[in-house]
Nucleic acid binder design. Structure first.
Lengths: 241, 241
DNA sequence: CGATGACTTGACTGAGTTCAAAAGCTGTGG
DNA sequence: CCACAGCTTTTGAACTCAGTCAAGTCATCG
């Protein structure tokens, strides 16, 4: 193993892109990587003229934001630890990537990474797999945006966050545990994710709390008390019986 | 050139996957291809247990449908001539692909195609590029679903259809011409695309006709009379001044 | 040419937005 | 350590866009 020394103790080494490629590609990758920290709120790559760079998230959450000239904007996706951030082979995307929380990243400069993609089919293959999964989840999210009620949207969101943040906090525990978790997004950001207004999100939080399904502490912590009920609400509003 | 004879006269030969790969990959592809016709309404690959097969669309339109147990369903994407249909490396997707119109396809059996992907990095690369574009458009569509009004949605939809169907009909003409085009979807299907009800779609059609922006003939033909105005309505409802 | 299903139109309802104001965190300076 | 400022969040009340239900019209096909 001639990987970069830091990789051996990396928190996401078993799930990230770099675990799915050969030693040669891995050591070439390690050669061009920079481990960096990014504070909450910083834009990683701005649309539409994004000076391309690519990253693997070590810790923190990145939001992919679609902004329009008229001021409307929407979060088109969230990326969590081990996820890849960046749009290879094009910089004309409407999306910008922003740090939703403080981040630790493995960052690669644009050209160098794209050259490696050309040299190592296994690296490109691993990235391809990841992009396919991003596409699956984008299409899944379209269903949420298009078909679900406010109640279902908020419940679905909390399920997803519980799973992802639970995984980030305790990589090996099952998702239905009841520990306090950090909410990586403000109410406004949650609203932008779900295509709701923050007032609507807030009201749904209140209802879920009243039902004893979730608990909150301060603005940024929550705990799922009944994952079964939360999942039920996330799939069908008509469980009112 | 040892490509399959049919490829030389193929309507999509300059835009499809197969134009972006080397001769060797192309001839291997040609060896496993079946040219087939599929009638409107037929399911090409059904979720969740999709017997995998892959296709390139020669003519016609495919809709990717996300169906839930409770009966709700949504069109998560449309694929047009030269587009690729199929989800490599997984058959657990929630999506099924259905013929929105009669189709002509270049169809590849699952295993054989996946083997080729492994053997030809240039084929995988070309497919990767295509999937990246699909991801871009999925995220763009999320903005429509989440942020746009009914008026904007219908206008956006007609813009997109005009562009795609115009291209399919006259590959080299600009998109803003005013020829009659075929609407590949029924009102119900358009509604499923836009996350509206068919009544709402119908009302918006009526309004656009009254404004002289579009014209319709029968149920399945339309003409854009003022592409500028249509584009304006597709981006901002607040142009009422 | 009449039946059947697709589309259009109308009247009413309701989930979620909008605007406004109160309450609750969080961090800073006395 | 407390008080105050500047926020985010919650709550309230009125409104609106799109949904719902129902009836009528129009293509298209046998």
């Amino acid at each position: 193993m001639n990987q970069h020394i830091k990789c051996l103790s990396c928190a996401v080494r078993t799930q990230a892109l770099c675990s799915a490629i050969g030693d040669e590609a891995a050591s070439d990758l390690a050669r061009i990587v920079h481990r960096i920290r990014v504070p909450e709120g910083r834009v990683i790559s701005a649309a539409p003229q994004n000076a391309t760079s690519y990253s693997i998230i070590i810790s923190g959450v990145v939001k992919l934001v679609n902004t329009r000239s008229d001021g409307r904007h929407q979060i088109a996706g969230l990326q969590f630890p081990a996820d890849f951030v960046g749009r290879p082979f094009s910089n004309t995307s409407n999306l910008s990537a922003e740090a939703a929380t403080d981040l630790e990243l493995c960052s690669f400069s644009g050209r160098a990474f794209e050259d490696l993609l050309g040299q190592h089919p296994d690296l490109e293959h691993a990235l391809f797999q990841r992009v396919l999964r991003d596409l699956d989840s984008a299409r899944e999210w379209m269903f949420l945006l298009g078909c679900k009620s406010a109640e279902e949207k908020v419940a679905s969101f909390l399920c997803m966050i519980a799973e992802k943040m639970g995984q980030a906090a305790h990589p090996r525990l099952p998702t239905n545990d009841c520990t306090m978790l950090i909410l990586p997004l403000s109410r406004t950001e949650i609203a932008e994710c779900l295509s709701l207004r923050l007032e609507t999100v807030s009201r749904q939080f209140t209802i879920l709390k009243a039902r004893g399904i979730i608990e909150t502490r301060g603005r940024r912590q929550f705990r799922v008390r009944d994952m079964g009920a939360l999942k039920a609400y996330s799939e069908a509003q008509a469980l009112s019986a």
